Simulated scan of single mutants.
Amino acid sequence: MSATAKKRTPLPEDIIARKGGAPIVSLTCYTTPMAQIMDAHVDFVLVGDSVGMVLHGLASTIEVTMDMMILHGKAVARGLSSTMMVVDMPFGTYEESPQTAFRNAARLMQETGAGAVKLEGGVGMAETIRFLVQRGIPVMAHIGLTPQSINTLGGYKVQGRGETADALVADARAVAEAGAFSVVLEKVPAALADRITAEVAIPTIGIGASAGCDGQILVVDDMLGLFTAFKAKFVKRFATLGADAEAAIADYARAVTAREFPGPEHIFADAVPGETR
């Protein structure tokens, strides 16, 4: 492919075809500029409901609304030209019934241009996943630690240890059989993640799971060091942009206070023919 050639935007079927192949690369994203940066490097972008915590300062994902997801979905879509976008369904928009889930998923796809939606839950959500898929809505599932359920899970705890491992395997099998094209495994013991990856026919996307998963995802603000309110064990900082930004802002404040900025090169003369900026 030439440097100027545009790759075809992947479809859910392309993600399924990657099962057992080259690892699937994905990141969570919320803004146009960040989407533009990652577009050429990832297989899909997830507009995650973690936006509530990362960008809006909320205590959890439970407070995130449909309008927020649509707003950020539209923003991310404007920054993508060759990458599939998946959008999280926020808490309370799909649990009531398959019919409710369909109406909200259809709205998400229509208003954002998403290629798929993601929802949390295993066996209990299988009927809903099947209902959506049968009506043309591709679904990415999410099991293990499901952040929208932290109030019933007792916090952000590792899931699937001990006697609960078989239940998590059953969740994975249920969402795969219902038609999900992939499943996120969050905060799951590595051996269990490897077992699930081996036993289900759809790709597993790990976040705090195992390097043996079919793919990996992180929140981009976490891995770049922009979001530092807390750091999960599974996050690797690939950069420290938050610290860099703080240092730059401190330098800016110093320069303004010292009247070093703006300098002659940053200000305008009374009239310069043809000057526009």
Rank of each mutant, 00 (worst) to 15 (best):
M1H: 13
M1Q: 13
R18P: 00
P23E: 07
C29E: 02
P33A: 10
A35P: 15
A35F: 10
Q36A: 12
L46V: 07
V51G: 03
V54Q: 03
G57I: 05
A59Q: 09
M66S: 10
M69Y: 02
A75W: 01
M84F: 15
D88F: 03
F91H: 13
G92R: 09
S97M: 13
Q99M: 08
G113M: 03
K118S: 12
E120C: 05
E120L: 08
V123Y: 08
E127W: 02
E127S: 04
I129M: 03
R130W: 11
F131K: 01
F131I: 04
L132Q: 03
V133H: 12
V133C: 10
R135I: 12
G136V: 02
I137H: 02
P138R: 02
V139R: 03
G144R: 13
L145K: 04
T146G: 05
S149R: 00
I150G: 02
N151R: 15
Q159E: 04
G160Y: 15
E163V: 15
T164Q: 08
V169C: 12
R173V: 14
V175C: 04
A176N: 03
G179D: 11
A180Q: 14
S182H: 09
V183S: 04
L185H: 08
L185A: 03
A190T: 14
A193Y: 13
A198E: 14
V200E: 11
I207F: 14
S210P: 10
A211T: 13
G212S: 10
C213Q: 11
G215S: 12
I217Q: 08
I217H: 11
V219Y: 11
V219F: 11
D221E: 13
G225C: 06
F230L: 06
A232D: 14
K233W: 11
R237Y: 08
F238E: 01
T240S: 01
T240W: 04
D244I: 01
E246N: 07
E246A: 10
A247E: 08
D251T: 08
A258W: 02
E260V: 04
E260T: 07
E260F: 05
P264L: 07
H266W: 08
A271T: 09
V272C: 02
P273R: 08
G274S: 06
T276V: 12
